[in-house]
Amino acid sequence: MAIDSKVVAQVAHLACLQVDDNETAALSERLNDILAMVDQLQQADVEGVAPLAHPLDVSQPLRDDQVTEPDVRERVMPIAPAIEEGCFLVPRVIE
């Protein structure tokens, strides 16, 4: 399943990565190498095999409904790139 520059651009957009036009050709070549390697998976006989998401067959532990998390603003606000009145700032979003 080879991908071209156009697909690379689409995928980069989905992943919010900026790929310049002069990079896409080289990048798609690299990605095609990886995908070609990964395509060995198509040889596997997986008929009737259930996907395995976690190595161990265990279930989700559940937490009691109690508020125990502290207010961490004093710790996190100083490392934020842009804040005002306790909010994180981003360029104006129009819905």
């Binding site: 937490r63 409904d65 109690q66 508020v67 998390e69 207010d71 961490v72 996190v76 606000m77 909010c87």
Partner: peptide, 27 residues
């Protein structure tokens, strides 16, 4: 109507100061 959030033990209360009920997980 739960006291804490779905995936973190921070409060679901509304009307508080911005980000005061946002835990490390919520952030």
């Amino acid at each position: 109507a739960t006291a804490s959030k779905l995936f973190s033990a921070s409060s679901t209360r509304t009307g508080d100061e911005p980000n005061s009920n946002a835990s490390l997980i919520d952030l």
